[in-house]
């Protein structure tokens, strides 16, 4: 049986300092004849006298340590992966939420909400203090033809409704012989 060569380990990643102190002896096939033997930090020119049971225990310990190192690394790797994926998802969710909020804000600002959000023109009011001309009938007819709200002041017929009858009444008033006199202003 070839004794394993003892080397001080440098690639012990994942093993704590205390463990490293305990496992300064690593078991591996000998690299060549004549190389010095190292055990517990001591270099031996000749093959150290290691009992077979100790050698076997060291091998078992080496395997167990290696497995523990790999498992720990694997666990860490898996955890890192999960964390990274979760972080990416969180970033995506935040981006999506921000975009949805921006879209909602844009809709609220720019989409007209029916007639209420449209610019409202001032309501045209009938001025009863001025002499009635055909312009009053014309304006009311235009108002009725449009979809704009009509002021109740245009109800010159007094029937409670502003409609074509009021246009007729205004037209009749405009041409009434008593409505304008000679030299009256336009």
């Amino acid at each position: 049986m070839r004794w394993p060569r003892c080397v001080t380990g440098r690639n012990w990643g994942g093993i704590g300092r205390s463990d490293r102190k305990k496992l300064l002896v690593s078991v591996e096939p000998n690299r060549g004849e004549g190389a010095p033997w190292v055990m517990n930090g001591d270099v031996h020119e000749t093959k150290p006298d290691i009992p077979p049971r100790l050698a076997e225990a060291l091998r078992r310990h080496e395997r167990a340590s290696t497995d523990r190192i790999n498992l720990a690394a694997l666990d860490a790797s898996v955890l890192d992966g999960i964390r990274a994926r979760g972080q990416r998802r969180r970033v995506l969710w935040r981006l999506s939420g921000a975009m949805a909020a921006a879209a909602g804000l844009a809709v609220a600002l720019y989409v007209p909400w029916g007639q209420n959000s449209a610019p409202v023109a001032p309501m045209v009011v009938f001025d009863a203090t001025r002499p009635v001309t055909i312009l009053e009938a014309f304006r009311l007819a235009r108002l009725l033809e449009s979809s704009r709200a009509v002021s109740p002041t245009w109800d010159v017929s007094g029937d409670g409704v502003v409609d074509d009858r009021d246009v007729e009444v205004l037209g009749a008033r405009a041409v009434r012989l008593a409505s304008l006199t000679q030299g009256a202003p336009a």
Partner: peptide
């Protein structure tokens, strides 16, 4: 004497 008036829409 007469007042005449008309409009068109």
């Amino acid at each position: 004497r007469v007042i005449l008036a008309a409009f068109s829409l």
